[in-house]
Simulated scan of single mutants.
Amino acid sequence: MIGAPQPTYAVEGHGLVKTFGDFRAVDGIDIAVPAGSIYGILGPNGAGKTTMLRTLLGIIDPDEGERRLLGDPAPLRQARNVGYLPEERGLYPSMKAFEAVAFMGALRGLPLRIGRERARAMLADYGMGASAEKPIRQLSKGMAQTVQLFGTIVHEPRLIVLDEPFSGLDAFNQGKLETLIRDQARRGVTVLFSTHVIAHAERLCERVAIVAGGKVRFEGTVDDARNRLRPQVRLRTRASDGGWRRALPPETLAQDGAWHFALPQEGIEPLLRALLDGHAGIESLSIERPGLHDAFVAIAGEAAARQMQADQVREEAA
């Protein structure tokens, strides 16, 4: 663990509302991020994720509700204990990579000498030691984004807040970022990030908030979200018809030469007995637990899920 003891929740928001004209960007949101956890805010672009983060951080004030950051009701008092990477990236093109990291740390009270030492070490550990002296304009997009990320954490904050941190990164650098997030969490740092890519949240997060239309539609563990849906059964039989078919659930679908249905509430054993007694000839049977994507569709709706997929396609094509 680092620094002073943390409160039970690193970030709290209760009844938060933020409007812009007639648009209600944040609509009565409640959220509590356990200290030391990796917590994801999941939703499509325009769902209210960025406004929610900025309200929690004290960058903008809510119209209604209360928030606490690291136990403090005045979030900006905790600015030096927070590392924030906004969705809109920005670095000085002529500044050298290691100087950019140190400069961002200095904005949070870290002495420049220490920032420069840490910056060089971080870049070297990340395989970017040879680029430490290069100006930002000579770096690739992924490398420049990594520099900004290091500038976000160089002062060793207790809380790291990342707004769409994977946006614009290729698969290799996304994997490196996931490793970095896990490393920070192992040090006891709380990591809160927003994303419209479900896979990142499923791999990284202990808890998630699913946001759509400015509201939190679900808050809890990834397992809690997935457990809202029953496991799915895929059954392949040699026989295509017979009395045994009456044992299949009414919602069973025949697709790709197999039967697909939700695991019955009573379990799979009664169905197996009926199939065996009816000489269905079981060729294969698999039971798959629903993924977070399936849970997202069930919680936020098909429209929000389609928008998430469209957001990802646009980003990959950019």
Results as ranks from 00 to 15, higher is better:
residue 8 T to R: 09
residue 8 T to H: 11
residue 10 A to G: 08
residue 19 T to I: 09
residue 20 F to I: 09
residue 23 F to G: 05
residue 23 F to P: 12
residue 23 F to H: 14
residue 27 D to Q: 13
residue 28 G to L: 00
residue 29 I to K: 13
residue 30 D to L: 10
residue 37 S to E: 08
residue 38 I to W: 01
residue 38 I to Q: 02
residue 38 I to S: 01
residue 40 G to M: 01
residue 42 L to F: 08
residue 57 L to R: 10
residue 72 D to H: 07
residue 74 A to W: 04
residue 75 P to V: 00
residue 78 Q to M: 13
residue 78 Q to S: 15
residue 79 A to D: 05
residue 93 P to T: 05
residue 97 A to F: 03
residue 97 A to G: 03
residue 102 A to N: 00
residue 104 M to R: 15
residue 105 G to R: 06
residue 109 G to A: 02
residue 114 I to N: 07
residue 114 I to E: 15
residue 117 E to T: 13
residue 122 M to H: 11
residue 123 L to R: 09
residue 124 A to F: 06
residue 124 A to C: 05
residue 127 G to P: 04
residue 128 M to D: 02
residue 129 G to D: 06
residue 135 P to M: 02
residue 135 P to D: 00
residue 136 I to K: 07
residue 139 L to S: 00
residue 142 G to R: 04
residue 143 M to K: 09
residue 145 Q to G: 03
residue 146 T to W: 11
residue 147 V to W: 00
residue 153 I to P: 12
residue 155 H to W: 07
residue 159 L to C: 04
residue 159 L to W: 01
residue 164 E to Q: 12
residue 169 L to F: 01
residue 174 Q to D: 11
residue 174 Q to I: 08
residue 186 R to D: 08
residue 187 R to Y: 11
residue 191 V to P: 10
residue 202 E to I: 01
residue 203 R to I: 01
residue 203 R to C: 00
residue 203 R to E: 00
residue 204 L to E: 08
residue 207 R to N: 05
residue 211 V to P: 02
residue 211 V to K: 02
residue 212 A to S: 03
residue 213 G to K: 05
residue 216 V to S: 11
residue 228 R to E: 02
residue 233 V to L: 13
residue 236 R to W: 09
residue 238 R to I: 11
residue 238 R to W: 14
residue 242 G to C: 10
residue 244 W to M: 09
residue 244 W to Q: 12
residue 245 R to P: 13
residue 245 R to T: 10
residue 249 P to V: 07
residue 250 P to T: 07
residue 253 L to S: 08
residue 253 L to W: 02
residue 254 A to I: 09
residue 254 A to C: 07
residue 257 G to I: 10
residue 268 I to R: 03
residue 270 P to M: 02
residue 272 L to Y: 08
residue 276 L to D: 07
residue 280 A to T: 04
residue 280 A to G: 02
residue 281 G to K: 09
residue 281 G to I: 10
residue 282 I to W: 03
residue 285 L to R: 06
residue 290 P to G: 06
residue 293 H to L: 08
residue 294 D to A: 13
residue 299 I to Y: 09
residue 300 A to R: 10
residue 303 A to K: 14
residue 307 Q to V: 07
residue 308 M to W: 05
residue 318 A to K: 13
